[in-house]
Nucleic acid binder design. Structure first.
Lengths: 210, 210
DNA sequence: TCGAACTGACTGTCCGGTCAGTCAAAAAAA
DNA sequence: TTTTTTTGACTGACCGGACAGTCAGTTCGA
């Protein structure tokens, strides 16, 4: 098939996923976002599962690009950009985060999903680790800061922020603010530590906002 | 119906949920964990959704008891007990956490689920806040520690640990260790802050060792 | 004997997947 | 060039399985 058709179907999958959620997603829903019929999608993809996996791969490529070179002058800004990008309420994708959580929840039952999600997790952790290491190297962050520990910590925190937002409506802004406080208070070498309950960490999100 | 029958069905719901997961759960699966037939369950509950909601309520009662009076001499120990109880790999419930995540992921589509999950969230946050406040009051924790912020922070982190464990297999032990480190380094008044910052706590290594 | 508890058989619906066939454009033959 | 064949893309109609929920009827204890 032409790449145009492929992206059309992948795009339709995204829209349908946001509209109906993963659990309620049907092939017809996807076809409805297309000028093709249901059978045509089966013609291009071996089945629903195949299509979803292709969609996750497609998503990962975008995610990879997005976290590849964090914008910002200082490591602190880049770190903030990296994390906050996943913990910000983008009006274009309220339902997307929810659908992604549904997929995460299916991951234990589906090896293909699981390996894809692991790629997201590893990529994000690696990106954070990289930026933190830069910060430690150039003196932005305390020298005792362990990039591995911080990266894993933030990844877990981001996961929590996303889950808690989707599940109980805990504001993403609150979680983002807590990360900001964490960066300032726990990592930055030039900031006075003010303790307090500030730093809450979380991590999580795989897919990003799209 | 007798409360015995009720608990039998609720128990069966739990077992079936762990065995099959939420997405694949059928009324027949639940009935199979019972000495009743499918129709009998429909006789006692208005439907699948009703039963699941009753199950969540049942679950909440147990949860409430569990976090009601955290065990431990010091606030630090009680806080640890509170958090680690939710971030420990209990052999009896590997699949249970996954099923719970599936339910969380459905929460945005289901008001009854959502309100129940919010009760869990609020109860846990309140329990943490309480213990932290005790710790601040008796000098175990720094006086600058904000119980509200710490409670929200830890709740989010716990969510992240659970999600990341289920979704990509990130070890719960690692997350638990990070929380231990957080308590020691960011909250406890008698611990030396590892960073150069100031007199107040430092959370440089909040992420822990993992 | 009355009614609550329970059951087996059944129904309606939904959905993933299949299939025979259409159609247009490319390739091959004339 | 014109005609024929092939092929890839696509479609409407259909199939079969799964599952929530129903219902007429049975069982059994009070």
């Amino acid at each position: 098939m032409t790449t145009e058709t492929a992206t059309q179907i992948l795009h339709a999958t995204h829209s349908a996923l946001c509209k109906h959620g993963y659990a309620e997603l049907t092939m017809q829903d996807i076809a409805d976002e297309t000028d093709l019929c249901k059978a045509s999608i089966h013609y291009h993809y071996d089945g629903k599962h195949d299509l979803l996996v292709a969609y996750l791969d497609h998503l990962y490529e975008q995610f990879e690009d997005r976290i590849a070179e964090p914008a910002g002058e200082t490591p602190a800004e880049r770190l903030r950009g990296l994390v906050v990008a996943l913990v910000t309420d983008r009006s274009d994708a309220p339902a997307f985060q929810t659908a992604l959580l549904e997929i995460k929840a299916q991951s234990p039952y589906d090896d293909a999903f699981r390996s894809r999600l692991q790629r997201f997790d590893h990529a994000f952790t690696a990106a954070v680790r990289e930026v933190v290491a830069e910060g430690v190297a150039d003196g932005t962050f305390h020298e005792e800061v362990d990039p591995d520990a911080v990266a894993s910590f933030l990844t877990t925190y981001v996961n929590g922020a996303q889950t808690r937002h989707a599940a109980v409506g805990h504001p993403l802004d609150d979680s983002a603010a807590a990360v900001d406080a964490y960066i300032d208070e726990a990592l930055r070498a030039d900031q006075a530590a003010s303790t307090g309950g500030g730093p809450s960490s979380e991590t999580a999100n795989v897919g990003g906002t799209e």
